[in-house]
Each structure stands twice: as structure tokens, then as C-alpha cells.
Design a protein around this nucleic acid. Structure first.
Length: 260
DNA sequence: ATTGTGGCCTGCCCGC
DNA sequence: TGCGGGCAGGCCACAA
């Protein structure tokens, strides 16, 4: 599903549209437009503008337009980005493989005939103008060790819940949280504030490596733990049967032996 | 303020 | 063969 690695790949794909001018906006699904805008306000804000920059913060894609607003795109659980008919990701877990044109929830048409399309079967994503960035914590890909420690300090919430909290640390979703905790040897149930300095360092190290690996492998579902996230699944490291329960409101799998 | 819960969305999979 | 219930999780509103 679209977590930090997927959205990073989307942002790289979106850069193919830099410098082009928007000539049309299609927003057939009012539900998909967030923040009080609608199809006509989006059209008025975007048509005639040139794409000047693409950024990412956490799971949010940001597209800047010259002398215009910033377009924010969220991908929810099943959203993909398609530029000039090309997709950034060959397969998205939990998302249907077939294609229904009705799943194209928003698109920009460019003067050269190309397009940028947000495709989202389950409609959990959305687009907005000038998203509020103040509600995001530091991006998980670039967070400093001290900022990570500050984000965990003093919290009694389960470590995994804290990692999923986008206002504390932006970009981690359910699958990557399980993968990082498994690699770090930390239980998702540990109170976030109970980690020692050494454990925070270890978490930070594995966070960086996990993001690098998943980016290279092409998605958050390509983790080493993924295949065993199922009933009867066993820890790839030591063979113990994995625990499964809901932590932070999400289905969680972890090794009862080496994740402590 | 912090933490936890439930609901939204919809396609898919399993059992009957 | 068709059908219905359960499941998936990012995000938000709301409660304690």
C-alpha cells in the first residue's frame, strides 16, 4: 500500500511532468476533493499553470505550480499515480490488478497531450489545495536520531502506535512499521518512551535501512517479514510462530522471541 | 494533552 | 453458481 517508499516512487514519476502546463482538470468525484474545494475551484486554480516542483512529506505528494497553489495528493490504501500512461509501481498490495476507468478520481491534462492521473479504487485518498503541512512530524526518511528520540520520549503509547502517528513521524504505515520493528528486535507493545538511547539508535538505523531496501525493492510490501504476515506464519530469523494482534488500531505481526 | 476507538471507503476471498 | 460476511488500512472525528 502507499507508504513512504511508494509515494517517493510516485514523486519521482511526477517529476516527468515538471515544466509542463496544465490545460485541463478532471475531478469527477466530489468526495475525492478535500479541504472545501470542488472541481471548478480546482480548475480555476490549476489551469494555465506550469508545474515547477515536486516534493514529498511522509505519504503526502506535493506539486507546486508557478504563481499558483500547491496541489497535495494523498493515496490512501489503494491509490496509484499514472503519468503519461505509465505507473510508478507494478503492483500494489490490497489493490485490484484490473483497471476500471471509473477509478481515475482526478487528473491533470497537459498542453503536450500528456496527463497525470490519480487512480484509487477504494477512494481512501484525496486531493487538496495548499495542504496544512504543520500537522506533520519529520519525514521518516530523513529524521535525525535526536528528533526520533524526541518523538518517542515520555510517551506511554505502544511504540508501534507512535510510529504510525503522522504528526510525530511522517511516512510509516502498517506494513513498514511491522518490518522496522521486526528488524530492530523491538516489540510493538513497548511503551514508546521506554526505549533506551541504544534502542532508539538501533531503531533509527533499521528505519533508514528498511526505507532504502523497500525503495530499491519497489514497495512497502517487499519486506522480509511480509510473507509470514499470515496465520501460522513464522519468524524468518528464528522460526518462532509470530504473534498477531491489534496494536495502534492495526493488525500487527511480530516475533515473541526476538522482539522484546 | 494524550491515547484509544469506530467509521468511512470498496474490492476481494472464503464458506455456505 | 451466487451470495453474504469479514477483512484490508490511511485518515479523521470523537470520546475518555
Amino acid at each position: 500500500m502507499p507508504e513512504l517508499p511508494e509515494v517517493e516512487l510516485y514523486s519521482r514519476l511526477a517529476r516527468a511532468a515538471l515544466g509542463r502546463t496544465v490545460t485541463s482538470v478532471s475531478a469527477p468525484d466530489p468526495w475525492f476533493i478535500k479541504g472545501g474545494a470542488d472541481g471548478s475551484t480546482l480548475g480555476a486554480a490549476l489551469v494555465g499553470r506550469r508545474l515547477t516542483a515536486v516534493h514529498r512529506i511522509g505519504k503526502l505528494l506535493l506539486i507546486e505550480l508557478d504563481e499558483g497553489p500547491t496541489l497535495g495528493i494523498r493515496f490512501g490504501m489503494t491509490g496509484t499515480l499514472v503519468v503519461d500512461g505509465r505507473e510508478a509501481i507494478d503492483r500494489l498490495i490490497y489493490s485490484p490488478r484490473r483497471h476500471d476507468p471509473g477509478w481515475d478520481r482526478f487528473s491533470l491534462g497537459f498542453g503536450d497531450g500528456g496527463s497525470l492521473v490519480v487512480r484509487d479504487p477504494r477512494r481512501l485518498g484525496g486531493v487538496m489545495l495548499d495542504p496544512d503541512l504543520s500537522r506533520f512530524g519529520p519525514d521518516a526518511a530523513t529524521v535525525s536520531p535526536s528528533a526520533l528520540a524526541a518523538g518517542l520520549r515520555g510517551s506511554k503509547a505502544p511504540l508501534k502506535a507512535r510510529l504510525l502517528d503522522q504528526s510525530r513521524l511522517a511516512g510509516i504505515g502498517n506494513l513498514m512499521a511491522d518490518e522496522v520493528l521486526w528488524r530492530s528486535g523491538l516489540s510493538p507493545l513497548r511503551p514508546a518512551g521506554s526505549l533506551s538511547t541504544a534502542e532508539v539508535r538501533r531503531l533509527k538505523r533499521h528505519l533508514g535501512r528498511t526505507i532504502d531496501d523497500l525503495l530499491e525493492r519497489g514497495g512497502s510490501h517487499r519486506g522480509d517479514l511480509m510473507e509470514q504476515r499470515r496465520p501460522g506464519g513464522r519468524c524468518p530469523r528464528d522460526g518462532f510462530e509470530l504473534n498477531r494482534s491489534t496494536v495502534g488500531g492495526r493488525t500487527s505481526w511480530w516475533c515473541p522471541h526476538h522482539q522484546v
